[in-house]
């Protein structure tokens, strides 16, 4: 029972590790931006007056939130293939992660919309703002400001969850690790390094979102509310 670790043998592959980390960030960035848009649309749809649209959005959110990401990725991967559509594994990964994080974003944004006091919307109507203006200035932006912390931690979780995309051989950090460990036979060391890299990535993302929050919501900064 002796543990012998040989980190130098694995660490000499550092360019691959860093490349993998960059790909993971890229994957997470695409899925975050697309998922935020998609999820916000779904949240708006859930509040729609048409029962068809509201019902469809509810089914989407509940289906995604109650099935594993791994199953969703396989369904998208093989689903697109069975339709005869050929995409790179990376594109499929972005699509699957977008669909996944969209559902969580929708649920968070819905909470944000519900937290907008009815009186503010009535006041805006009284001031003869157009429906679009009301949606943008009175509902959407303040809602995002309210749920910003919840949204950003969801996006960090998404970055971590993107490791699952290695299962459809999309290029990212965990896939790189799988390749290196099968090449060097140093599995334990490889995954320790990868774990450290993921911790660093999540710290970087949190710091980035915190900074972005300071820029986006100056009012919040003035009030001293923690982001």
């Amino acid at each position: 029972m002796s543990l012998q670790l040989d980190f130098p043998a694995v660490l000499e592959r550092w360019p691959s590790f860093l490349g993998g980390a960059a790909l993971t960030l890229e994957l997470a960035a695409f899925a975050t931006v697309l998922g935020a848009l998609f999820g916000t649309l779904a949240a708006v749809g859930r509040g729609s007056r048409s029962p068809l649209i509201a019902g469809a959005c509810k089914v989407y959110v509940e289906t995604i939130r109650n099935t594993p990401l791994l199953v969703q990725i396989f369904l998208v991967y093989f689903g697109l293939a069975s339709l005869g559509l050929k995409f790179s594994a990376f594109t499929v990964a972005v699509a699957a992660l977008t669909i996944n994080v969209g559902a969580y974003t929708a649920e968070i944004m819905r909470a944000g919309f519900e937290a907008i006091p009815r009186g503010q919307i009535e006041a805006a109507e009284g001031l003869a703002l157009s429906r679009l203006q009301i949606y943008w200035h009175i509902i959407l932006l303040p809602a995002i400001e309210k749920v910003y912390p919840a949204l950003t931690s969801q996006f960090v979780l998404l970055m971590l969850a993107s490791s699952v995309c290695s299962q459809i051989s999309a290029e990212e950090l965990t896939a790189v690790a799988n390749y290196i460990q099968s090449d060097t036979y140093r599995a334990f060391e490889t995954y320790i390094i990868v774990a450290v890299l993921y911790v660093i990535l999540s710290l970087v993302m949190r710091a980035g979102f915190w900074g972005l929050g300071l820029v986006l919501f100056p009012r919040r900064r003035r009030l001293g509310t923690p982001l």
């Binding site: 029972m1 002796s2 543990l3 670790l5 971590l160 969850a161 993107s162 490791s163 699952v164 290695s166 965990t174 690790a177 460990q181 599995a187 334990f188 995954y191 320790i192 990868v194 774990a195 993921y198 911790v199 999540s202 710290l203």
Partner: peptide, 24 residues
Amino acid sequence: QLIQGTPLLVILFLGYFGLAAIGL
């Protein structure tokens, strides 16, 4: 912080290969 900053997939690999590495 460490666990919440690491994907479960990587923790699973660490558990699987780590326990093997110490000879279990």
